[in-house]
């Protein structure tokens, strides 16, 4: 049975670990140099969902920016989901992720959104307070991830796939 493909865009500040999360999740097809040349790198992976049709996530890893320019906005077109990525050790990256979400909402009002707070392996250095995350969870699905150890990565992407398949 053919999996239904969905476009998922990774958004977040520079250095938060978007590319690392994608690399952890998929076997990358293209070189990361596309991020610095074209500004985006596309990979895909199929996820089996229990009791439902398989879902194929086409991941658009968009180069880290604090705001979306016109080119990046074209990359967002047609996306079914957004994975916001923040660095737990940098509280400012959370603000950037939320600003990017607000900016992209004008183009993608109905897209599924999930927040991944990355670098869980450095949790002792986190600047983002648990209370903040608790508050965020009331409006967004939040996953704590570590691209280095792989903790929470599968769950974050599976959560998105589940929401898309629902």
């Amino acid at each position: 049975m053919t999996a239904i493909a969905h476009k998922l865009c990774m958004l977040g500040d520079f250095g938060v670990g978007k590319t690392s999360l994608v690399s952890r999740f998929v076997h990358s097809t293209f070189s990361e140099k596309y991020l610095t040349t074209v500004g985006v790198k596309v990979d895909s992976r199929e996820i089996a969902l229990p009791g439902r049709a398989a879902c194929k996530l086409v991941l658009w890893d968009i180069a880290g920016r604090s705001h979306l320019d016109a080119l990046n906005m074209t990359y967002l077109r047609g996306a079914s989901a957004l994975l916001l990525v923040a660095d737990g050790t940098r509280e400012r990256s959370l603000n950037t992720a939320l600003e990017l979400l607000m900016q992209s909402r004008s183009l993608l009002p109905a897209a599924e959104v999930v927040l991944a707070v990355n670098k869980l392996d450095l949790v002792e250095q986190w600047e983002i307070a648990p209370a903040v995350l608790a508050e965020l969870r009331r409006t967004l699905p939040v996953h704590e991830t570590s691209a280095r150890s792989g903790e929470g990565v599968e769950a974050a992407f599976a959560d998105i796939a589940g929401r898309l398949a629902a």
Partner: peptide, 11 residues
């Protein structure tokens, strides 16, 4: 990976 290639072509 047709999806990745198509995505990159579009990008």
């Amino acid at each position: 990976d047709a999806d990745a290639i198509a995505g990159m072509l579009t990008a």
